[in-house]
């Protein structure tokens, strides 16, 4: 039974599962942010209140290797000069340091979509904040279980 469970969970990790995030940030465990994460988030928000949704996160629900967690982020945006995403920030909630990556986008892009790989020290949620050209900010979160932590370096 245990082995079957293991096989099922690894099979799930092999294909990128679409993590449902719309249910809200608190479900992904971001209600109680550690101080350094809250500070990093506040620095990005700069007094603004983020809207939930409008961001799709493709991430594995279970990652074998926390050192290389593949993630695709997709922000709903026409990417025109008048209405585009200017930045996408990824913050870890349980890494030694919250910063993962800060992407700067321009209307030269056809879509607000980025693929990258994260380093996650342990099972945790990560936050995605998207800054729009009109000043609004969107927020989403996804949770990843990590079999082997990615903080050897």
């Amino acid at each position: 039974m245990q082995r079957r469970h293991f096989l099922a969970s690894t099979a799930g990790a092999a294909c990128l599962a679409l993590v449902p995030f719309a249910a809200g940030a608190e479900q992904a465990g971001i209600d109680a942010l550690p101080d350094d994460v809250a500070e990093a988030r506040a620095a990005i928000l700069d007094g603004r209140v983020p809207q939930e949704g409008g961001i799709e996160i493709d991430a594995p629900s279970l990652a074998e290797n926390g050192a290389q967690v593949p993630v695709t982020l997709r922000v709903d945006s026409p990417m025109t000069a008048a209405d585009h995403v200017i930045a996408i920030h990824i913050l870890a909630t349980r890494n030694p340091a919250p910063g993962i990556g800060h992407f700067h986008l321009t209307p030269h892009l056809t879509r607000a979509e980025v693929f990258t790989r994260l380093r996650l020290a342990e099972e945790q949620s990560f936050l995605v904040l998207a800054e729009l050209s009109d000043g609004r900010v969107r927020q989403a979160a996804a949770r990843v279980m990590v079999t082997q932590g990615g903080c050897r370096t």
Partner: peptide, 17 residues
Amino acid sequence: FACDFANGSAANPTIIF
């Protein structure tokens, strides 16, 4: 397009846009 890396950026940084 640009990216500022941080501690959580994985080794051999891969970015697709």
